[in-house]
Amino acid sequence: MGAELRMEPRTETRTESHGGISPQIRMANEIAVQFHHQPPEEAAAAIAAHIRAFWEPRMRAELLRRAEAEPQALDPLALAAARLLRG
């Protein structure tokens, strides 16, 4: 009864998964695009509220650091949200 449990894996992995984008930038942009239908101010507030409610402080800090260092990497609404979070 029972199958083999320690066969050699038949898998290989590559390293291109994140494409060099920081997780915080990627996730903030993914959130932002969901709010594109809203007026920009409302959208930025909603994005900021979401991030405040669900992101751990070091993630928020990293987002703010990235927003400062590479604002062009962020969706404009995510950037606006980051400014609200900073404020």
């Binding site: 199958a3 990627r26 996730m27």
Partner: peptide, 20 residues
């Protein structure tokens, strides 16, 4: 279901925007 195939070797980092 089987680690020997490890299907999640191919799945990606993409995730739900609200919950990951």
């Amino acid at each position: 279901h089987h680690p020997v195939t490890g299907a999640n070797v191919v799945t990606t980092e993409n995730s739900d925007w609200a919950t990951n």
